[in-house]
Design a protein around this nucleic acid. Sequence first.
DNA 1: AAGTCGGGGCC
DNA 2: GGCCCAGACTT
Length: 355
Amino acid sequence: MRETDFSERVLDWFDQHGRKNLPWQQEITPYRVWVSEIMLQQTQVATVLDYYQRFMATLPDLKALAEAPEDEVLHLWTGLGYYSRARNLHKTAHILMQQYEGNFPASVEQLEALPGIGRSTAGAIASIALGMRAPILDGNVKRVLSRHWAVEGYPGESAVARQLWDLAERLTPTERVNHYTQAMMDLGATLCTRTKPSCLLCPVVASCKAHILGREQDFPTPKPRQTVPQKHVVMPLLVDAQGCILLYRRPSTGLWGGLWSLPELESLSALPLWAQRHGITLGLQQPLAEISHRFSHFQLQIEPWLVQVEAAAVGIAEADWLWYNIKQPPRLGLAAPVKTLLKRVTHHIDQGTAA
DNA sequence: AAGTCGGGGCC
DNA sequence: GGCCCAGACTT
């Protein structure tokens, strides 16, 4: 589709469904837009509303802000977080009064040079308050664009960010940029939400690659986890004379809920007591190669041991325990690494029982 | 490129 | 309890 088709659909949607009653959308001035954009950095609209009203009631214009003590500005910001935003706001007010005669510079480059104003905020002020054709790329727009064009990769990477900025630049229309900017943010905030986007109501769903692929949730690629918590567990594969392996069924809730898994121990040294408690007499033990299993929230290092069972009491034959016959495997749910381990030891056991 | 700032909402 | 949010700045 052409760039103009995209922006026209977005603008039509905005005319019908966009938000037009937010406080910073009334009596639009560069000052009011600027303050709102700073407050809205990493902060949701609902949170900002009260702060914005109080701020504007106390410091209604650039001159008032510049003449206010920093303590007063920070007081108005208390609870909003990212307090460097307030200090930079104050600094910029002074710069505008002293170097720009109380006016906002009319170029994205000059706006971006001011403290607290980055590329996206500069684009927002330029387009919304000054009517200039300038793109923005905040979290909402990143989500809309990365989904619409199925842009792979974490936007924090420079190459991915470059792609998204390039898209944002090309799609920004020459007419009604102020409404287009507001529309894109509304689209991301109200329809193209992080979870459960309302694609049926989206004006550009027909050309949305993520939707066509059914992969809305895959975009944008989330920030790669830095430090994943590491956990370690010993899993004994207890093999009886028939070549069956002891499994137990996990509780229905929680990790691997309802799946069958191997016994879990903190260390191998805990095995003798564990076996004694379950009426199991142990034989030969041999270590197997470790398995690393990644969950969404942690990494599990599995230390598997192949352990021969000389004798087992019947007490273990309860509802949540079973001797798993590898040669005639029952149809039941197995935890993924357990399945891997069972498959891996099949030939070990063949050799063991043949001997 | 990674770390820092921060409170609130959400799952 | 982690993750994310109308990001920008420093290291």
